[in-house]
Amino acid sequence: MIQNLLDGVLTGAIVSLGAIGLTMAMHMLRFANFSYAELMAIGAYVALVFDRLFEALIPAARAAIGPLSLNWALAAALVVAMAATGLSAVAIDRLVFRRIRQRAGPLSMVFASFGVALILRNLITLIFGLKAQLYSQEIAFAVILSRDPLILIKPDQVFVLAAALALMLIFHLVLTRTTFGFALRAVAENPALAQVAGVRLSAMVAAVWMIGGALSAAAGVFYALTNHLAPTMGHNFLLPVFAATIVGGIGSVHGAVLGGFIVGIASGLALQIMPSGYVPAMPFLIILAVLLLRPHGLFGEEQA
């Protein structure tokens, strides 16, 4: 029970990171982006490539940091992956979504995002293979917190939770304390008015993709660090991330964070009452419950 709860909190942190960018992009560009979760997979695999590269170039970077299986090479690769994924998110927007946005309605964008997701996912499969991979072949030993009930925690999991919370805090401060954060919120609120006030819309759209891509990449790497890398990881996170944005209310960053934890913990606790095969459907049940009880989410505003 407590073990499931802890695992749920960890999953929740990863879902939250993924949901932040999605909720902003959905609010600002007004379409549900089904290719969004693929950014997590892109981030995780870019990190894999640079992790191997740094390990080969700088043997000293192979040293693990403290008790973690994370080493300096992967830590550096994480930073590179965040930047690279942000840039590829901007590139995908320029290449596909912006062109469709200019000539068709939001539902065509939803449609296109389905196609983009299919292409990205299968390109990753083609390049890296169907097999699941690991950053480190070394076994990460879990620390026993208590024997009855048995509760195990890996140092990596503690690190992932702390790092995810730190990233969210940084983003929260940027959003609430900086001019850039104000501009971002203004565009989300009312694009036309924000433009009148001198905010460049295209720059803000790029910024949202950049931030969303970077946070998703971190989420992908964190997931891969505590589980494994697989080409299907983006697809598997798609529904949880959408559920988090709907629970929190589309457009609400704080709502997305809270929604992510709700989805993660609910999926963890669901293991108590249902066979694990049904857990992928859990976010769907949460979506249905929210649509029944509070269609605009916890912090969302009504919007047609």
């Binding site: 769907f284 649509l291 269609p295």
Partner: peptide
């Protein structure tokens, strides 16, 4: 009754 893309998300679910 809701935002158009809710149907897309729900049917995917």
């Amino acid at each position: 009754r809701l935002r158009h893309d809710y149907l897309a998300i729900a049917t995917f679910g």
